[in-house]
Simulated assay, not measured.
Amino acid sequence: MTTIQKFAAIAATSAALALAFSSSAQAEGKIRIAEQFGIVYLLLNVAQDQKLIEKHGKQQGVDIDVDWVKLSGGAVINDALLSGSIDIAGAGVGPLMTIWDRTRGRQNVRGVASLGSFPYYLVSTNPAVKTIADFGPKDRIALPAVTVSVQARILQMAAAKQWGVAQFKKLDPITQAVPHPDAAAALIAGKTELNAHFGGPPFQEQELGGNPNAHVVLDSYQVLGGPASATVLYATEKYVKENPKTYRAFLDALTEAAQIIATNPEAATDSYLRVNKANTDRALVLKIIKDPKVQFRVAPQNTLGLAQFLHQVGAIRNKPASWKDYFFVHPAIASGS
């Protein structure tokens, strides 16, 4: 079995596990949250480590049972949400736009909150690749989900700027769905056909420090025109309406988690390491959290441009006029964009 086939088998297994969770209706006081890999999920890590959802639930008069699920890839996350296996999905703006578009008038999935704004780097170990125009048919770019992940969508946006809108899928054939930890390990080792990875922190920093040939080919902020919320949380309208106290406790917990990260990044670093059982260098995690380019905030930032691009190229049928079209209204995210 080739490395690519192994990664495909892992993805298929993840999808099967996602659909295997109980799909029974949940009553107020229960929340099942799916996250993926990386520091971009730090708000959730802090909330889990310090039991902030349970804390704010008690303030609402509800004892909340929280289930945490780790999955990889927006497609798997979306399948789990629509199957009723999870209540809160954590993935990129790309998967959010896909599921928002497909469920309008039915499950009415919308965004709940942002997890912050982070620069995502497309890292290559091929010395000949300086820009995306240098990628050839033998290169392989790892990302969490082909086509639908936010990395895949940003890459398409970059391709449209490079070669024209009609060529926005030009690089899709050389992309491969691989979980971030596996992609980072492959790039650092340099022993597989994967020679590029469009990931996120801390994996991109580990690659840049772990392989002398690793270098940044593309920065998501350059494509999106500045800091932007690439990773978000979303849910069905049914869950939000039927669980108002749990939903409020969840958003209050995220807001407190953001405050903790801002005022005590050292404690947030320890939360990340404990929750993820990671052997990542603590100094590296702390450095990323303190990076001025990184912003942990619940209000979405600069998401409309990517959303409208997806409509322009036909990836979604419905054109959003505002970020409020695909996010639920709540005071915690009132300053979004």
Rank of each mutant, 00 (worst) to 15 (best):
M1E: 12
T2A: 11
A8M: 09
A9S: 13
I10W: 05
L17K: 14
A18I: 08
S22F: 07
A27Q: 15
A27D: 14
I31H: 02
R32D: 00
I33K: 07
F37Q: 10
F37C: 10
G38H: 10
I39R: 13
V40I: 12
L44G: 07
N45C: 13
A47S: 14
Q50R: 15
I53N: 03
K55A: 01
H56G: 02
G57E: 08
K58V: 06
D65P: 02
D65A: 14
V66C: 05
V66D: 08
K70A: 02
A75R: 14
V76Y: 10
I77Y: 03
I88T: 06
G90K: 06
G94L: 05
L96T: 05
M97V: 13
M97P: 07
R104I: 07
R104V: 08
R106Y: 06
N108W: 09
N108L: 10
V109E: 09
G111H: 09
F118I: 05
F118L: 12
F118N: 07
P119C: 03
P119K: 04
L122D: 00
N126S: 11
K130N: 07
G136I: 04
P137Y: 04
A142H: 10
A145F: 08
A145M: 09
T147D: 12
I154P: 01
Q162K: 15
G164S: 06
A166I: 03
I174S: 04
H180T: 11
A185D: 11
A189W: 07
A189L: 11
T192M: 01
G200R: 06
Q204C: 05
N211W: 10
A214E: 10
H215D: 08
V217T: 06
L218I: 07
L218P: 03
L218Q: 09
L218K: 11
Q222T: 14
G226V: 09
P227T: 13
V232A: 04
L233D: 01
L233C: 01
K238C: 00
V240N: 00
V240Y: 01
N243V: 00
N243K: 05
P244Q: 05
K245Y: 00
Y247R: 03
D252E: 15
A253G: 04
A253M: 03
E256F: 01
E256S: 01
A258C: 02
Q259C: 00
I260A: 06
I261G: 02
A262R: 14
A267P: 01
A268I: 11
T269S: 11
Y272T: 09
K277L: 07
D281Y: 04
D281G: 02
R282P: 00
L286N: 13
R297S: 08
P300F: 05
Q301I: 08
G305T: 11
Q308H: 10
Q308M: 06
F309I: 09
F309Y: 13
Q312S: 12
A315Q: 15
N318Q: 15
S322G: 11
D325R: 13
Y326G: 11
F328R: 13
V329D: 15
P331L: 13
S337K: 13
